[in-house]
Amino acid sequence: MEHPPGLDLGDARTDRTGSRVVLVVNPSSGAGRGAAVGDAALTRLRGLGHQVEQVVAPDAATAERLAARAVARSGSDAADALVVVGGDGVVHLGLNVVAGTGVPLGVVPAGTGNDLARAWGLPSDPVAAVDTVDACLRLRSVRRLDAVRTVPVDGAGGGPRWVAGVVAAGFDAVVNERANGWRWPRGAARYNLAIARELPVFRPVPYRLVLDGDVWETESLLVAVANTASYGGGMRIAPDASATDGLLDVVVVRPVPLHRFVRLFPKVYRGTHVELDVVEVRRAATVEVTVDGGGRHPRPIVAYGDGERLGSLPRRFTATPGAVAVLAPLPT
């Protein structure tokens, strides 16, 4: 029987015994819904016969470190999977624990956007998501998907990281950086306010992009490097991006007047912005993004991946085929 690309069925037998699962929950995801979903996922996984070790930590960095330690165990204590409960942020955490290890990643969506779960074909309903994790573990079935390895260049800030979905490196990243500097308001209101504050003062950025060795110099309002189609709760910034083609979609929005830039944004939710003459999309396996110096744009740009802070540009992004094994249903 032939299976779709990216699928690994192992020996394809049904495993009647439970698996050893490391569970990480973001209790604040989904406006506080994550805690309840995490408790329900823990109870259901144990009820299905799995041995579950829950990682409890005061912050994301500590949770990632403890989860990595649990996943690194060998022998009879070896983890069969890491399962995360929350939004894209905790999926990003899980990816950085398991990428390249062969340990599969399961996701129970409990965020407000859940772009990565949607891109990977996972159920939005938490109970169905836990049942998908259970079924994939018992069948030893995983999908091997691309992830993005990013490293700083020329002493830029931040260390190496993995990204599952979209890297923001323009206006969207600046909005994220501004919003993250505020404690109030909370949730989507904070980002909407950051957009309103940033729009009148943001200026085009001179970029130097290197795509598989080819140099592309351009002034842009927005640069996104995408492994999957959407971010920000359904904005289809790169509608044709795929996590199985070994390539990254580089989306560039050239300078336009403020009123046109504002009108462009609703099109992003449908993915029709790529049809506009001010938007260009190119593909490459490796992309280096630099903000041109020389005083033309003294403001630093901090890149964000999966909504999480990566560090200042310049950075290099490389599509890595099959870097993550995901407990996900077959593609249709």
Rank of each mutant, 00 (worst) to 15 (best):
A243L: 08
A135Y: 06
D8V: 10
G121Q: 12
P206H: 09
V153D: 01
P152Y: 08
V324L: 03
P109N: 00
T62W: 07
Y191K: 10
L7W: 12
P27C: 12
S141L: 11
L330E: 00
S19E: 02
P152K: 09
D277W: 02
V127M: 09
W184Y: 04
T101L: 00
D80N: 13
D154M: 03
G233H: 10
G106V: 07
D15K: 06
R178C: 01
G106M: 09
R69K: 11
V278E: 12
L330Y: 07
V174M: 08
V153N: 00
D292N: 04
A117I: 08
V302I: 09
R46D: 03
V163W: 02
V166R: 01
E177F: 04
V153Q: 00
T17G: 10
V167R: 01
V201P: 03
N114S: 11
G187E: 08
L248W: 01
V97E: 01
G10P: 03
P4F: 10
V210W: 05
L122Q: 09
V223M: 11
V256R: 08
R203C: 12
V291E: 07
G47P: 03
G18K: 05
R203T: 15
V250E: 06
L95H: 00
R69M: 11
L45H: 09
T43L: 14
G86W: 12
P300W: 00
G32M: 13
P160D: 03
R186H: 15
D125H: 05
V25T: 10
A110I: 05
P314Q: 00
T286K: 06
G294R: 13
L9T: 03
G159K: 13
G233D: 10
G293S: 05
V55L: 13
K267A: 14
M235K: 01
D125S: 04
D240A: 13
P204R: 08
W162Q: 04
A226K: 11
S230V: 03
T244Y: 10
V278G: 06
V274M: 10
E198K: 15
R69H: 15
P300A: 00
P5L: 08
G157Y: 00
I237T: 14
V151Y: 07
A238Y: 09
W162N: 02
T286H: 02
G49K: 05
A35T: 02
S141A: 07
S220Y: 04
E198I: 11
L137V: 08
A147K: 04
A110Q: 04
V84C: 08
V56N: 09
A303F: 03
S74H: 12
L264T: 14
G86S: 15
G32E: 07
F202Y: 15
D15A: 13
V163D: 01
R44K: 11
E64F: 02
L209Y: 00
S29T: 11
L45V: 11
F265S: 15
F265T: 14
G158H: 00
T286C: 11
L93D: 00
T290P: 04
